[in-house]
Design a protein around this nucleic acid. Structure first.
Length: 962
RNA sequence: GCGGGAGUGGUGUAACGGCAGCCACGCCAGACUUAGGAUCUGGUGCCUUCGGGCGUGCGGGUUCGAAUCCCGCCUCCCGCACCA
């Protein structure tokens, strides 16, 4: 190998650069050569224990496995900037380190390629999205390959490959083909539900059997509808987030707090529509509880916890005329303080409850200025539907609402509570109705203030409390009826007691609610996975048999869904696939002879493909199975009793905290319940890599100027001689501050780029990009090169000479430090230790003296995970034929980590006053004695009273004077 | 508003409760050079009367000893945002 990359630097100008210096040109030359060799030799082919990728497994069979991966990229046409590879480099360094440190490492990469940008580009140009997507993938693959990443290329795939989305569809059918058994707390095949319903050992779940007649009396279609309503993937007519500007519906997660699309920032409207839903709410408890078993950051877990939003409390019924209004509350203990009720404007009982006329003497604040309750309600509902989606934020928290003209009865004391509608109560949470306790709830207090409603305090505030609602702890007051008194109790006890009373009187029960909603799974788009679903003559959904998968995306003339004016709330979705007339109608024999069916024309959301791709890396070519259970067990299975299993290290951005990461966990748990995977979680350990930001500059008009052309002078910044203002933000086209890896590789080589990017901080830390600092990493690699190769002659300087003791100590300290840094993803520490050793060798051995082989060989291996090309080249020049990728990583020798003597600080009253050198194993007494002998210390102690002496062996001595 | 995280030289950062600032950028000086935006060597927290003093956002506390632990405050970043 060394022959291919050892040609001396051309020196036509005689500019004094030594002919064998590690220059950018040489770096590039040897990087390309090593990348070619790795590929030709299949250096990074990871053997599976069984199957078609198992060649060479015997070599690693005895080793522990490590599955390391990144969140795969979406192949955008813009290519990568220097921020993108940060995580990829982190996993690459880790993967290379673990491989050298005795692991069978799986480090794959793929492409998340369905999605909106390719489709929008296709809509504009008429180019098939597959063409542009595949071109983008090719370009990004080339960029990544040039970084020297150690992917097993045999395992690469894209979510748009029919051989992949066949199994995405298969998993959909698994989810469609199952239901969640609440008693067992897990998913089971739907056939088992049918059997239990037929056997009478189970009755339909609440809300699944609209007719209410027994199962045995239902006809086939009715039965099918009951069964369908139990499925984990089910059709549901419900208000959805319809985005006319995008021509599609969106999941709750894709809608921002101010009611706009996360992508494109178009207005989003709530409108009823029949769509596919995924019953992720069935898994809310497991998704929440199992977070405790994951090695994820606390902040990320917290984001998922908040998103799932479990709260425990009680459901309480308030009778209102002939109806009962159910509310959810986390504070049933405050029931005696309820003085009014509020329903969400969209609450289904609003129309029924609304009175025909205002009673005499109705407070004008309660009527909204309308002549009748019905008019007031209609007008308020109209406003609320607009306001809730358009500009709730701008409205602030000012409380609005109208009275329905009726009262409900507080079950605990018979008090008449006026019933309002107000938009501060949300239809989607709890029951969409609340009991209002202004004394102990800030929002209720504000509403009560605005509407002149009474306040009854049921928790005793502290004496000095002068605020409105009191939400703190305190003894219960004013809370007793003939049968029950909560007075004097604390909150927890009071909740128990009131809940028991409510249950006994049939007025309520303890319950749990979640913020998490079921996952809207239909999109009116072209560039996504088609559903493997057809509809029969009854419009009932039927699974396409596994044998007919994949359901391929048909060709269409027009890729766009029909889009509408941004604010056209009444528009109706028209998916592109509905235009493929010869595709939407299909004749199939599903066991009853050939019949005509209608295909589902929605496609799956972008998240589907990323929900399970980690499983497919195990063998993307397997056409018979989603994943071989034996491979899943080996790479992902639990390692011990109670272990959740999963990918050993997953690195990606925090922007996926509640979308991808929640959906993937959900799918994985379903697959686990159905027996397809042994692991309970997809990602055992997860790291959020930081972002790379960059400075950006605006001229006096406020326009961004190319950051690369800005020069600094005396602390001010100039573009073409004119002063500019420095800002700081995400790297991107609009800020004109993009730096690409290609530019950096062109200027310095991939190894320098890798080392620089890894040296700027721990992987999880966000950091600014600073091109001018990259040269420091270049200098480091140059010095390392110079330690091994004589720059003038090209001769290898390594020789079989014994290193001096201080060099040996430096080496082993470095080994320990580098192992620590690489093992904890603090690559900056590893690089600092390598720099120290290199600087030590440079000053100890100069530019030409022989350098001990026993030091430079380990140094080369230490560098290898970070700068693999230069390390391979040096390793080769040191006389090794094989790649060092599989060579044992150096292990520090304890003997050289302990010093014979140590310098110990001597403090007087906590201030360092002297240093003494003592044998490393000196005990406290010896330490104190040595410290007292020091002249300066003796001076301090002279005439003073030593009250106390703290002597910590190996650390310091502290004299405390009185 | 609620929740979480973070504040250390000009900059990125480092420091088992034990000598604050490893390593690097930048800057200063020097060497080699016709030249330096290459390379190498040295210096570089602040103040100083050269004895030393002061320094980890601010103020308290615990401790022989605090960047580190505790309490309060300030600032910045992130998430959620009327979630009953």
């Amino acid at each position: 190998m060394s022959q291919t990359a050892s040609s001396p630097n051309a020196d036509p100008t005689g500019d004094g650069v030594p002919p064998h210096r590690y220059t950018p040109a040489l770096a590039q030359q040897l990087e390309l050569a090593w990348q070619a060799r790795w590929e030709a030799e299949g250096t990074f082919a990871t053997p599976n224990p069984v199957g078609r990728l198992s060649e060479g497994f015997e070599r690693v069979a005895h080793l522990p496995k490590a599955f390391v991966m990144d969140m795969f990229p979406y192949p955008s046409g813009a290519g990568l900037h220097v921020g993108h590879p940060l995580g990829y480099l982190g996993t690459d360094v880790t993967s290379r380190f673990l491989r050298m440190d005795g692991h069978n490492v799986l480090h794959p990469m793929g492409y998340d390629a369905f999605g909106l940008p390719a489709e929008q580009f296709a809509v504009q140009t008429g180019q098939h999205p597959r063409v542009t997507t595949e071109a983008n993938i090719t370009a990004i693959r080339a960029q990544l390959r040039r970084l020297g990443l150690d992917y097993d290329q045999r395992r690469t795939f894209a979510t748009i490959d029919p051989g992949y989305y066949k199994w995405t569809q298969w998993i959909f059918l698994q989810i469609f083909g199952s239901w969640f058994d609440d008693r067992a707390g897990r998913a089971r095949p739907i056939e088992e539900l049918v059997a239990e319903l037929g056997a009478g050992t189970r009755t339909p779940a609440p809300g699944t059997n609209p007719s209410g007649r027994p199962w045995t009396e239902l006809d086939d279609v009715e039965r099918q509808k009951v069964v369908d309503a139990h499925r984990l993937a089910y059709l549901h007519q419900a208000p959805v987030n319809w985005c006319p500007g995008l021509g599609t519906v969106l999941s709750n997660e894709e809608v921002t707090a101010d009611g706009r699309s996360e992508r494109g920032n178009f207005p989003v409207f709530r409108r009823p529509l029949t769509q596919w839903m995924m019953r992720i709410t069935a898994y809310a408890d497991r998704l929440l509880d199992d977070l405790d078993r994951l090695d994820w950051s606390d902040s990320l877990k917290l984001m998922q916890r908040n998103w799932i939003g479990r709260s425990t409390g009680a459901r309480i019924g308030f009778s209102c005329g002939s109806e009962t209004v159910e509310v959810f509350t986390t504070r049933p203990d405050t029931l005696f303080g309820a003085t009014y009720m509020v329903l969400a404007p969209e609450h289904p009982l609003v129309a029924t409850l609304t009175a025909s006329a205002w009673p005499d003497g109705t407070d004008p604040r309660w009527t909204g200025g309308a002549a009748t309750p019905a008019e007031a309600v209609a007008e308020y509902q109209r406003q609320a539907s607009r306001r809730s989606d358009m500009d709730r934020q701008a409205e602030g928290r000012e409380k609005t609402g109208v009275w329905l003209g009726v009262t409900a009865v507080n079950p605990v004391n018979g008090r008449e509570l006026p019933v309002f509608i107000a938009d501060y109560v949300l239809t989607g949470y709890g029951t969409g109705a609340i009991m209002a306790v202004p004394g102990e709830d800030t929002r209720d207090w504000e509403f009560a203030e605005a509407f002149g409603l009474p306040v009854v305090r049921t928790v005793q505030p502290p004496e000095d409390f002068d605020g409105g609602a009191y939400t703190g702890p305190g003894p219960m007051i004013n809370s007793a009826n003939d049968e029950l008194s909560l007075d004097g109790l604390d909150k927890t006890t009071a909740i128990e007691k009131i809940t028991a009373w409510l249950v006994a009187h049939g007025s309520g029960e303890a319950t749990t609610t979640y913020k998490l909603r079921d996952w809207l799974f239909s999109r009116q788009r072209y560039w996504g996975e088609p559903f493997p679903i057809v509809y029969d003559e009854n419009d009932l959904p039927i699974a396409v048999p596994d044998s007919m998968l994949p359901v391929l995306l048909p060709e269409v003339d027009d890729y766009s869904p029909r889009t509408f004016a941004d604010d056209d709330a009444d528009s109706v979705p028209v998916p592109p696939l509905s235009r493929a007339a010869e595709w939407t109608t299909v004749e199939l024999d599903l066991g009853d002879g050939p019949l005509t069916y209608r295909r589902e024309t929605n496609t799956m959301p972008n998240w589907a493909g990323s929900c399970w791709y980690y499983l497919r890396y195990l063998d993307p070519g397997d056409d018979a199975r989603m994943v071989d259970p034996e491979l899943e067990e080996y790479w992902l299975g639990p390692r011990s009793e109670g272990d959740v299993g999963g990918v050993d290290l997953y690195v990606g951005g925090l922007e996926h905290a509640v979308l991808h990461l929640l959906y993937a966990r959900f799918w994985h748990k379903v697959l686990h319940d159905l027996g397809h995977v042994s692991s309970e979680e997809p990602f055992r350990r997860l790291i959020n890599q930081g972002y790379i930001s960059a400075h950006a500059y605006t001229d006096e008009r406020g326009f961004y100027v190319a950051a690369s052309e800005v020069v600094e002078k005396d602390g001010a910044y100039f573009h073409e001689g004119r002063p500019v203002t420095r800002e700081y933000g995400k790297m991107g086209k609009s800020l004109k501050n993009v730096v690409t890896p290609d530019e950096m590789i062109g200027a310095y080589g991939a190894d320098t780029f890798r080392v620089y990017e890894m040296s700027t901080g721990p992987l999880e830390q966000s950091r600014p990009w600073e091109t001018k600092a990259v040269v420091g990493s270049q200098r480091l690699l140059q010095r390392i090169w110079r330690v091994v190769v004589d720059e003038e002659t090209g001769a290898v300087r390594a020789a079989d000479v014994d290193p001096a003791e201080d060099t040996l100590r430096a080496l082993h300290r470095t080994i320990a430090g580098v192992r620590d840094g690489l093992g904890t993803l603090r690559f900056n520490i590893a690089i600092a230790r390598i720099t120290e050793l290199t600087n030590h060798l440079t000053s100890a051995y100069g530019a030409t003296s022989p350098v001990p082989r026993s030091v430079v060989e380990p140094l080369t291996l230490l560098v290898a995970p970070l700068a693999p090309h230069i390390a391979e080249e040096l390793w080769s020049r040191l006389g090794h034929d094989d790649s060092l990728a599989w060579h044992q990583f150096p292990v520090a020798d304890e003997r050289w980590l302990v010093e014979d003597t140590v310098e110990v600080a001597v403090q007087v009253n906590g201030k360092v006053r002297a240093q003494v050198t003592v044998p490393a194993d000196s005990d406290a007494q010896a330490l104190e004695a040595a410290a007292r002998k020091d002249e300066r210390i003796a001076g301090y102690l002279d005439g003073a009273t030593v009250r106390r002496v703290v002597a910590v062996p190996g650390r310091l001595v502290n004299f405390v004077l009185g």
